[in-house]
Amino acid sequence: MRIADLHCDALSKLDRDPKLDWAESSGGELDVTAEGLAGGNVGLQAFAIWVPAGTPKTPESALRQAAIFHDKILSAPGMRLVQSGADVEAVLGPGASERGALLTLEGADALRGERWALRLLHRLGLRMLGLTWNEANWACDGIMEPRGAGLTKEGRSLVAECEALGILIDVSHLSEKGFWDTAELARRPLIASHANARSLCPHPRNLTDDQIRALVAAGGLMGITFVPFFLQALRPAGIDDVLRHVEHVCALGGANHIAFGSDFDGIDTYTVGLAGPADYPALADALLSRYPEPLVRGWLSGHARRFLTDHLK
């Protein structure tokens, strides 16, 4: 089955170590490689620009990762830049043979409020933006910021400009107040590219049942993630734990709003059986052992295909 994955951090690793070879397996330094995507039949992979602590959070840092995306990711044979619904259909639709790369931004910190930087990244293919990582920035508070504030005035303006450009808003990492501020403000459905259910695993990064219901009611999309400590707090996480979160979102009415966002290359420990995109067939088999094939196809790529086709300009 064709796969869509809504989040990975390979660009940050490639930025830190230019010697890494993305085209082929690189001795384990990269989770996501061209070889791995082919092995897992991943038709669409989202690549996040993320500027970590210790790297200047400037537009130049973000643009450098955008350049890596174009120079390394898109230069691999058969890779297509995904900017529109037509591109989504080309990589996830019937008979698709190419693989799609979607450019995203995890945390608006590096923009420093500079609208020229947002517009330039949009021209380079940016089509999804997470307002912050875990801490506070000029736009909003992250979920680990103790004060728990929502969007700033500048953050509200950023949401409006993203919507005008056709950039989707990702609510992963947002404070709860920020989530509700964004849900109230946004005109397009929101996406949580990599998050799980907090009622099953009480990590702050996971979404509450009320947040999941709101996302579903607005026609949004939730990418169940493979971060082990977002799946299971008390023991090593396995594929069965991924299925528990899928089942819970279904119970909240979200069966038609589930996708996957692995967070590969953004984690140091792995869910057993899910160490890279080549392991997606094992997840597909586990899902098919419990659920009808049409549901599984939707979760693996169908819902992401529909959502992105509908909402990417």
Rank of each mutant, 00 (worst) to 15 (best):
S157Q: 15
D241S: 06
G238M: 04
L300A: 09
E60Q: 14
A286D: 01
I258A: 08
I68A: 09
V88Y: 10
E114V: 10
V51P: 11
G166R: 02
K57S: 14
C162P: 11
L231V: 13
D170T: 10
Y280T: 07
S289R: 12
L252S: 08
E89G: 03
A149F: 12
P94N: 06
F226N: 04
A304F: 08
E114M: 14
D240I: 04
L105R: 02
K57I: 04
D285W: 04
Q65D: 01
T269F: 03
G273Q: 13
E184L: 15
E176N: 00
E247L: 12
G166W: 03
H122T: 03
A10E: 00
L37S: 08
S193E: 00
G40K: 03
A160V: 11
G220V: 05
L295V: 09
S97N: 14
R306D: 09
V159K: 06
D31N: 15
L207I: 08
K177E: 14
K13P: 00
D31H: 15
T104Y: 00
G95N: 07
G40Q: 05
T152F: 12
A117M: 08
P18F: 11
F260H: 05
P236G: 07
I169Y: 05
L165G: 06
N41R: 15
L131P: 09
A183I: 02
L295E: 14
V272C: 10
G85V: 05
V216G: 04
R127L: 06
R198T: 04
A10K: 00
A86Y: 00
P77G: 07
G85R: 05
D268F: 12
L215D: 01
L74R: 12
D263N: 13
H311Q: 09
A282G: 08
L118S: 08
S193P: 00
A214L: 13
H245K: 10
S262N: 05
A101S: 11
P204E: 09
L221I: 06
H303V: 01
S193I: 00
L124V: 03
G28D: 06
G298K: 02
S157L: 12
E154C: 01
G39Y: 00
C140T: 15
L103F: 03
A259I: 00
